[in-house]
Nucleic acid binder design. Structure first.
Length: 352
DNA sequence: AATTCGATCAACCGCGCCGGC
DNA sequence: GGCCGGCGCGGTTGATCGAAT
């Protein structure tokens, strides 16, 4: 459609929060005359607003039949049920809940119900159990094993703090290995799933520094595993010698490296060289934010040659690297990992 | 007591549909 | 059939408030 002027860009029309006086004028006018044409209404009612703003204020706030207050359990259940059928059709959902507006339901979904479902291990988009969480199924076992190592130490008191740190570090590394495993299957299309899973920005695996960091971590993990007499080999993971900005790192495959390099992890599970189970046992990721996937796919279509080879803009690569660097090193990020670990350690997790 | 952080939700924005001309 | 304007919808923003530090 061409030439349509935005309704509120005329200078002088008020925007933002409504005053009680404006509310009064709007209510009185509509009670007396009905709203009629929303476009004509503001002038007739003596309001310095656009029609759209008036309509929104009336339908979402001032309408007399609006029900206020907390959503009941029945209403919550209705919303969840309807959302599983209708998706984000908030107005359609609202039509089944007398007195509730689409805006209110949408907000309530985003702030409460979505989190509630996620917490119960249900994907709020598909309304099915989150298959991606299965990948972390042996995380509690890993933590328990690492924590039990204290019994092997000669001086437990001295080692308690270090062991706690080591256990956390092992868990982090294990998580990173899982991420690499997912990337190795389809690096470009899975990034957004991982972003959703981890809540991070775009993935930084095109960054040589980041890879170096991961290689260093995996060798540290080897040291930890050796000290603990764990039969695992984190160093099976290696990064290429050099990595250009337009390269996407692909971890070595079993085909490429041969079976000699495959690993047996600390739990006796055969793995693909990353200390984790083979693809066949891994469930597919479930995208939590399909709209974000769409954006990522668009970005993935960009010709890599159009990406500058040197000094990428600090707003992209640098910031994501910093984000991941913090994730691994910064004490402040511990709460982030704690959330993941807490979730993995809860009795109701993993979801089957 | 001051500051920071996270949650909440009212309001805005832009797009697409639909009906009138 | 094509254009135009009104309206409704879904996504996003930003102000506000309470909790945590």
């Amino acid at each position: 459609m061409m030439g349509r002027s935005p309704c509120c860009d005329e200078s002088g029309l008020k925007k933002g929060p409504w005053t009680p006086e404006e509310d009064k004028r709007l209510v009185e006018y509509i009670q007396r005359h009905g709203h009629g044409s929303w476009r004509a209404l503001p002038k007739l009612a003596g309001l310095n607003r656009c029609g759209k703003s008036c309509r929104l204020r009336w339908t979402n706030y001032l309408r007399p039949d609006i029900k206020r207050g907390k959503f009941s359990e029945e209403e919550e259940q209705t919303i969840v049920n309807l959302h599983s059928v209708l998706g984000n059709k908030w107005s359609a959902i609202a039509s089944h809940l007398p007195g509730r507006t689409d805006n209110e339901i949408k907000n309530y979904w985003n702030t409460h119900l979505r989190k509630k479902l996620l917490h119960r291990g249900i994907d709020p988009v598909t309304h099915r159990p989150r298959a991606d969480l299965q990948m972390f199924a042996n995380l509690p076992q890993l933590l328990a094993t690492a924590a039990n190592l204290s019994s092997l130490m000669t001086n437990p008191l001295d080692n308690v703090l270090r062991l706690q740190s080591d256990a956390t570090q092992l868990a982090k590394i294990h998580l990173l290995q899982t991420i690499f495993q997912v990337l190795s299957r389809n690096p470009s299309s899975q990034n957004s799933d991982l972003n959703s899973l981890l809540g991070a920005g775009s993935m930084p695996f095109q960054n040589q520094q980041m890879l170096d960091h991961l290689v260093r971590l995996s060798s540290q993990a080897d040291g930890l595993a050796n000290a603990a007499q764990l039969p695992c080999n984190f160093s099976c993971f290696e990064a290429p010698q050099t990595l250009h900005n337009d390269d996407i790192y692909r971890p070595p495959t079993a085909t490429g490296r041969g079976q000699d390099n495959d690993c047996i992890d600390q739990f006796g599970n055969a793995s693909n060289g990353f200390g984790i189970q083979s693809d066949a046992q891994m469930p597919p990721l479930v995208a939590l934010y399909p709209e974000k996937c769409a954006v990522d796919k668009t970005e993935a279509k960009l010709n890599p040659k159009e990406i500058p080879n040197i000094n990428p803009p600090p707003t992209s690569t640098t910031s994501t690297f910093e984000c991941w660097s913090e994730l691994l090193d910064d004490e402040a990020s511990n709460s982030y990992w704690r959330d993941i670990i807490d979730q993995a350690s809860s009795p109701s997790w993993p979801i089957s």
